[in-house]
Design a protein around this nucleic acid. Structure first.
Lengths: 137, 137
DNA sequence: TTCCTTGCAAAACTTTTGCATTAAA
DNA sequence: TTTAATGCAAAAGTTTTGCAAGGAA
């Protein structure tokens, strides 16, 4: 997967008020190159094998920072670890139970004809939908 | 919350092919007394403060065993820890982002008028829906 | 006796944090 | 120069595992 142009990432970070350090730009460049789902460990491994000098702490700190600024979205799909989704537009997910793969499901392919009213004093902040998949027999 | 009659739990476990040991019956008795969502740590604390002699390892082993037999369901709602749901009938959840509380949403209160076809070679194994709630302003 | 279960401690894993060093503005 | 970010190691939190001891059949 081609990393996104570092210059574009730099601008995007600066636009969010995030100081575009070398490590942050590399993470952004990797993650924002296409819609994808990566774990912190995967990001660390990919950057290091590409020759980057970066620590685990910085990866976690940066991912949390990006998520807080809405650049990425943190998913809780299986209990094992967090997945970071570079697609922050509203969408849902297929989750292949065998491979663990996550596949984006665009909003228009799901339609709710009925939803429960939120409890009094609350409003809906978001809807997470995960469609679990198994191999067809 | 009243624990369910231990005798009924014993029968239920035996019916699943699970040997009804003292610790397992206590966990079942606590968890299956009503539809609820508990963490392993909460279960351990409640049983111990009720005078039970039980270890953390046994709580985890037992919860995994129960989940494997379909007696309970493990939820991934926030990344922090697993929640064990004593309601194994199909249903969805509200998740209060402020308090962390989980509230069951019965199946009939949600209706899908459109769902995406599962990718070739796969079929839908289940649908997890979490409606995140924030305080209304 | 034989097999399974438990408890304890240690290990495994993911994520966070403290602090000295380094880089950015 | 001043402030913020990084790296490392250690800590924290959750869950799993190895193994000796205990309990059920």
């Amino acid at each position: 997967m081609e990393p996104q142009a570092p210059a574009a990432c730099e601008q995007r970070l600066a636009h969010c008020g995030i100081r575009p350090t070398a490590q942050r730009v590399r993470i952004a460049s990797l993650l924002l190159s296409a819609p994808q789902h990566l774990s912190a460990e995967q990001i660390l491994a990919q950057l290091r094998s590409a020759g980057a000098r970066i620590s685990k702490a910085t990866v976690y700190n940066t991912l949390n920072l990006f998520a807080a600024h809405g650049l990425i979205r943190q998913l809780s799909v299986d209990g094992s670890r967090a997945w970071f989704d570079s697609n922050v537009d509203p969408h849902y997910h297929f989750h292949d139970l065998e491979s663990g793969a996550l596949i984006d499901v665009p909003v228009p392919s799901v339609e709710f004809s009925r939803l429960p009213p939120p409890p009094p004093g609350t409003e809906v902040a978001g809807i997470d939908l995960v469609i679990r998949l198994r191999k067809k027999m």
